[in-house]
Design a protein around this nucleic acid. Structure first.
Lengths: 332, 332
DNA sequence: TAGGTGAGTGTAACCGGTTACATTTCGCTG
DNA sequence: CAGCGAAATGTAACCGGTTACACTCACCTA
């Protein structure tokens, strides 16, 4: 391994000069700089990054905790994170936590032990064990966000978005609307449910708990929940699913029951994943700027890391858009 | 930051003893060990990982280069990689390369500069600039594999798998079969095309280049290619797509043309992504153990890193399975 | 000409662990 | 009780950079 000393020797200068020629070229004379660069070239020298990181206490790595990478929406968010991080010279250490707290804490430890400069959490959970008194490591909470997050956040106004979907269904004349929600205890699910109920209330409808079934954001959970909804004596004329994956599962189940979408029953989703416009019929849903969630989270995190302190308590709300396609139609 | 010296002082021992008590507990006496552990606890000491990495020249990080994380299949592979890596105490540095060579080389550099111990490449491309004479950094090539990979590989027998799909279509009586393939220059695409042609040849059919259209593994490219196939004077009675994403796009296009699947035209995909069994009709496809690709790649890579040298030239072939669903049926 | 200035460079301490080697401790045998 | 070897522990070099501080020297001013 060629190190800085070999290069210094080769160039006939001191190690300090080599370091400076590479990091702050403007403080060395042009002549020496050229000598050093030539020596670097000749020796095929590349600084040992672990040494640089160790000495400078900066790794230029960010930890990303994602509940499940198999979810198309999260995959897009990660794409945005990675792109933004890379552009700023940061790498990302990805952890697919599957919602496991121990795993999350272990990876969060990478920040405490200086193997990463900060952390982006895409789940509504604080992975840092509240070490008494000490400063919190840099963190941003995005997508599924804690109510009282101890850090900047990037989220959607889930309540307003769910309300707009529901209003769309109400406008089509539906008044018995089923809902397939996400896991319990999730602020995101709670907000979407609230938005759903807001719209019903404005329309003068009473919320009916028996029309709400929980899922886990996978197609098969949507499939199961739709089965439950259809087996009612008075099945709903429309179903609002908290994400597109569950909506696709629900649509499958509805078709297997011999019902037509949207003639017999309307279906709406949430996220606008790539498949939403390709399923049959194309899915009415809420479009979110997934990649931007990631980019924004990185921007906020780097603001904290470089302590541009004004950013320490920012809470960004990302825009959404109701995309109406053929999966929703007038009530029968 | 509490460091090893503070702990040593607290425990009334030397730094060496602290280091040993933590790394090789069996060489220190039980009494001292307890003293040290108590001091560690009291000081809330956690070794600075960058220092450990620097000193031991081991980072316990692996670089993963993925062409696009938005692809459901790759997302699953990454899930497998992450799980296996984590179990062995390794983290993964993810790079969504979008097929860009410069990006790939930059990340590959993390291995050369010791910020990672090895690399997993999911694309058929060698990211290391062939540095003359020097030893190749540890690398494994998985999924889309180079023909003459300079490293262990994990792949599918794409030719056999494509052949089995095609045989299934032929057995159903189809003799004009369209194909939507992947990007040119990809060994993976070439092999699937060869398998397709193998089956046709065995059935005594001549390959017809005009029935083969290129896509890029996205639903919209499948949609476009299907449009091209349908606009022929004699459209095919079946279409084999090189992945499920394109198959879903193709199915959408076929329905928009007013044709029924599979009565008018059969469609088959490749990968068996989560949505394959939920689309309409459920998709006939090739199931691959995506997560196992990742796990296997990690296992091989760690074999090289820990130079269990017997592994240096392994080429694993993963199993596949034809999953027949309702998207394929007898030729009209 | 003495003295001051600042650009360019070198010396060496330092980051926080790991570990080779030296030293001490302790139990055991003759 | 001397003597020995093994076990336990301490000392300090080391990894490869970064950077504070010291130093040299050319140039300028009074």
């Amino acid at each position: 391994m060629t190190n800085i000393r070999k290069v210094a020797e080769l160039a006939g200068v001191s190690v300090a000069t080599v370091s400076r020629a590479l990091k702050t070229p403007d403080v060395v004379s042009p002549g020496t700089r050229d000598k050093v660069l030539a020596a670097v070239e000749q020796a095929d020298y590349r600084p040992n990054l672990t040494a640089v990181q160790f000495r400078s206490q900066r790794t230029r790595n960010l930890v990303v905790l994602v509940p499940t990478i198999a979810n198309t929406f999260f995959a897009r968010v990660i794409g945005g994170i990675q792109e933004a991080a890379q552009r700023r010279g940061y790498g990302i250490l990805l952890c697919n936590t599957l919602g496991d707290e121990r795993t999350e804490r272990a990876y969060a430890g990478l920040v405490s032990t200086r193997q990463a400069d900060g952390l982006i959490q895409l789940r509504a959970h604080d992975p840092f064990t509240t070490s008494s008194g000490q400063a919190r490591p840099p963190m941003v909470n995005a997508c599924e966000v804690l109510d009282a997050a101890p850090c900047p956040t990037v989220k959607l106004d889930n309540r307003a978005a769910a309300r707009s979907v529901t209003e769309h269904l109400l406008a089509l004349g539906h008044c018995r609307i089923g809902m397939i929600k996400g896991p319990r205890n999730s602020p995101l699910t709670r907000d979407r449910l609230l938005g759903f109920q807001d719209a019903l209330a404005v329309a003068g409808l009473l919320p009916d708990e028996s029309l709400v079934f929980p899922g886990d954001f996978t197609p098969s959970s949507g499939y199961r929940a739709a089965g439950d909804l259809l087996s009612r004596a008075d099945p709903p004329t429309a179903i609002f699913c908290e994400n597109d994956e569950m909506a696709m599962g629900a649509m499958r189940r509805i078709k297997e029951a011999g019902l037509r979408i949207p003639e017999d029953i309307s279906v709406a989703g949430f996220d606008d994943i790539a498949f939403a416009s390709f399923c049959d019929p194309p899915l009415t849903t809420i479009a979110q700027p997934a990649e931007d969630f990631g980019r924004e989270a990185v921007a906020l995190l780097l603001d904290i890391i470089d302590d541009r302190d004004d950013a320490a308590d920012e809470h960004r709300i990302m825009p959404f858009e109701l995309v109406t396609r053929e999966s929703t139609g007038p009530a029968a």
